[in-house]
Amino acid sequence: MLLEVKDLKVSVDGAVILDGLNLNVGRGETHVLMGPNGAGKSTLVNTIMGHPAYKVERGSIRFDGKDITHAPANERAKAGLFLSFQSPEEVPGVTLENFMRTSRVAVTGKPVRLFAYKRELKEKMDGLAMDGEYASRYLNVGFSGGEKKKSEILQMLMLNPKLAILDETDSGLDVDAVKIVSQGVEKFKNPENSLLIITHNTKILEFLKVNYVHVLMDGKIVKTGDSGLIDRINESGFQQLAASGAV
C-alpha cells in the first residue's frame, strides 16, 4: 500500500473536521474523492501533506512504508507526495524557474544540470501550452486562475511524485484549459504512480482509468465504489445517496 490513512481525527482551531477516516491508496491506482462542500476534502489532503494548522488528534498516516503522521511537509514531499493546491500562494520575488529548480534539488537531493533542466522545463511548459515567459515570472504572482493551475501541474510533472493529490485542479477552468490540464495529468500517470483526485467534474477523469471512488461526508469516508459511483452521485446528489441508505 502506498498511502494508508487509519482512523484519522483532525481538528482545525479546536473544531473537529475529520473523525474516524480510513483511506488506502495502492501503487498505480487512481482514486477519486467526492463529497459535498465543507465535508472536509481539503482538510484531508492538507493533513496528508502536513499543513501545521491541521491538528492530528488520533490515527496515523503511512506513506511508502513510513509513518509520516507528524513529519514536516518538506519531508513528505521528499518521500514522494505532491499536492496540487486549490488556490496556490503567490510568492513575489521568486521566479517560477528558480523555485522549481530549488524544489527539484530539495526533493531529489541531487544537483540539477542547468541546460538539461531548462530544456525539460521548456518541453513541459510547451506541453501545457504555457508561454515560456512564465518561467521568469514571480511564482503565481499575477497569474490567472488557469495559469496557476497549469503551474501546479507543471510542478507535478517536474517533481514526478509517487502520489499526486489534485485538489479541484479542474475547477474554475475553461473548457480548453481543463483539456490541457487533463492531458498533463494523463501524461504523468504511469503504472507505478498513483493519483488522488478531488473533483466536482468528470472532465478531468476522461483520459484516466479510475479504480476507486470515495464519498466523504460527516468527517469520514461513507462509501467506496468503482467509477460507476460518479454517475450515480451526479444523477441523484450526495444527500440522496446518504438518504437512500446506500451508505
Binding site: N74, A77, P88, E89, V91, G93, V94, F99, T102, A106
Partner: peptide, 26 residues
C-alpha cells in the same frame, strides 16, 4: 500558508522563510 506551500515542494521551513524574505527584498 506561503511557508507551507514552499515546504510542500520539498523546501525546509528555514529555507522557505529565507526564500520569502529574499523574494520580498529582490
Amino acid at each position: 500558508d506561503a511557508i507551507f506551500y514552499l515546504m510542500s515542494r520539498g523546501i525546509s521551513e528555514e529555507d522557505a522563510r529565507a526564500m520569502i524574505v529574499t523574494g520580498f527584498a529582490e
